[in-house]
Each structure stands twice: as C-alpha cells, then as structure tokens.
C-alpha cells in the first residue's frame, strides 16, 4: 500500500488502509467473529490462538458491544456498539513498535507533526483470566491504541508471547478526520453519489439498543440463558476427546468457547440492566473466567493449540 496517498476521507477508508497495511506486513486478514463480544480480544483468533506454540499473525475488525456505554447516540464518543481493529502476532516481532507506528502513518497521521507516546498501561481481563504488559499509545494526548504483550491467557502462560494491538476505530478515525461528534463522521467518501454518515448508519440502532439494553431486556430470560450457556460449555468439554462416530480425536474447544463468549455477553447485558449487585458481580465474573480457563485448557490439547498426538 502506498503510504503517501494523503489524508483519508472517511471512516471506511481508515479501516481499508489498516487492512491493506497489515496484509502487506504478512497478517492473515480475518473477518469479524459472528457472535456478540465486548472487545476484539474475545475473538478466538486472539484468545485461543495466543495459546500454544504455533506461530500466528492475524488482523481483523471486530464489532464490539458494551451495553452500559449506550447513550442513545447522543454522546459525541460513547456507543454501545462500536468497532475495534485488532492485530495479534505470535511470537511478538522485535520491531512491533515500528510496525505499529507504520500503521499510524498509513492512516494519514503525519509523524513530523504529532507527539506519539507509549504510556504505561497494564492490561487485565478478569473474565478471560488474562493479563499482559504494555502501553496505551497517545497521539497528542489522546489514547489511540492499546499495545500489549500477552503474558497469560485463560490461566496459561503464553509461550511464545503474542503482541496484541487494539485500535478503537471510531475514536481514532474521529481524530484523524477532525470530527467532533461520532454521528457526524463520514462513513463512506463524502463525494460518493450517496454519502452516508456514521449517524445515518448507526444513530437509530444506538437508540433502539440503548432502550432495550437499559429498560426492556428480559432479565429472567437472560439469567436463564446465562445458566444454559454455562451448562452447555461444561457439557461440551465433558465429552471424550475421541469422537465415536468418526473415530477421530476431536476436542471441541471452539464450540465450548462460543458458549463462554455468550455467557460473557449476557453478563454484560445483565450488568446494564442494573440487576447485578457489587458482590454478585465478582461471582459472575468468576464463573465466566472459570469457563474461559476450561476452554483454554481444552484448546491446548488441540492441534492448533500446539498439541502433538
């Protein structure tokens, strides 16, 4: 990708440039995971693939949902549904910082005019039983990315260590495009025959989901779904590794992990509905973490997880 193509003009152009950049650096450009998640880290291409010894390099956009952040589309930069751009490379290459800075240049940030800083920020995901060390990256005082060296995921030490980059796409794009309110941001090229803003695409859905998340979602049903997802996850992992039908060894780490993701998202919804007390909160997080750990335990007994039969 040519990096001297000038300033991008739309949200989607920034995404396309990131895709092209990371593809040119050898990443497999994956598609979003087809489930509701709170962050790009939950995609199995990050959570599970950061485990085990097999090398890995992937980049993808992940739609992410944080029900408590919904503001009916009125807050200039808070959304209950937003996009993250996620890069995971294992083992972390020695020039990962330089590669990352290259990606900022690719989306039109002029390295000669801006002040880029790596500010300590240790990452921890209590629901995934994961932690790492790294930074939040500041551009002129604004956090534009998270940069993390994974040390542990699902209770397993990461060896080799993965380098993870997470870009909050809306915030980053608003900064690059000079937009004050997310809903005003051009989604496609403003010169297009049918120019669409972020608001044209998402204002209505933000309202609809905010209402549902905060006031309507049936908490009894959600609580039941949580229990079911938890039970199903356990049931899947309780199956013997050898499939009686095919006679093959098939550990179902991914289907089990889907149930873990589901439980995690339902917990977020219940949290937004305000039905989880402070003490219960810890208990729910602990239950999701237990699932994540069991899925990680299962994944490392699969081929992709580095298991040699």
């Amino acid at each position: 990708m040519n990096q001297t193509q000038g300033a991008p003009r739309s949200f989607q152009e920034i995404i396309l440039r990131l895709q092209a950049y990371w593809a040119s650096k050898g990443c497999a450009v994956l598609q979003p995971y087809d489930m509701e998640v709170g962050a790009g880290t939950f995609h199995p291409a990050t959570t599970l693939r950061s485990l085990g010894s097999a090398p890995w390099a992937a980049a993808y956009v992940q739609p992410s949902r944080r029900p408590t952040d919904g503001r009916y589309g009125e807050n200039p930069n808070r959304l209950q549904h937003y996009y993250q751009y996620q890069v995971l490379i294992k083992p972390s290459p020695p020039d990962l910082q330089a590669l990352y800075l290259g990606s900022l240049e690719a989306i039109g940030i002029d390295m000669g005019l801006h002040d880029i800083r790596f500010v300590e920020d240790d990452w921890e995901s209590p629901t995934l039983g994961a932690w790492g060390l790294g930074w939040e990256v500041w551009c002129d005082g604004m956090e534009v990315s998270q940069f993390t060296y994974f040390q542990q995921v699902g209770g397993h030490d990461c060896a080799p260590v993965s380098g993870e980059l997470t870009y909050g796409l809306e915030r980053l794009a608003m900064y690059v495009l000079g937009i004050e309110h997310v809903m005003d941001m051009p989604f496609n090229d403003p010169q297009s025959p049918i120019p669409l803003s972020y608001g044209d695409v998402f204002k209505q859905t933000e309202e609809e989901y905010a209402r549902w998340n905060f006031d309507v979602a049936n908490t009894d049903v959600l609580l039941k779904h949580f229990e079911e997802a938890e039970a199903e996850c356990r049931a899947i992992l309780d199956q013997p590794a050898d499939d009686p039908k095919t006679g093959k060894r098939i550990v179902m780490a991914h289907p089990a992990y889907d149930q873990c993701i589901k439980a995690s998202h339902i917990f977020n919804l219940l949290d937004a509905r305000g039905v989880i007390s402070v003490t219960e909160r810890q208990a729910y997080i602990g239950r999701v973490r237990a699932l994540a750990k069991q899925c990680a335990d299962a994944f490392v007994t699969t081929k992709a997880g580095g298991y040699a039969a």
Binding site: P76, G112, H114, D115, R117, C139, D140, G141
Partner: peptide, 23 residues
Amino acid sequence: VANRETADNGATVLAGNRRVLSA
C-alpha cells in the same frame, strides 16, 4: 509537555491536546 519539537512549533500537538481536554 510534548516529547518533541515539530515543524509547526507544536501547533498540531497543542490543538490535539485541546480537543482531548475538551472531550
């Protein structure tokens, strides 16, 4: 406190910081 001098004497950096502060 920025970590560098820039061609525009910090104008872009300062403008960016002002925006972040406003938010």
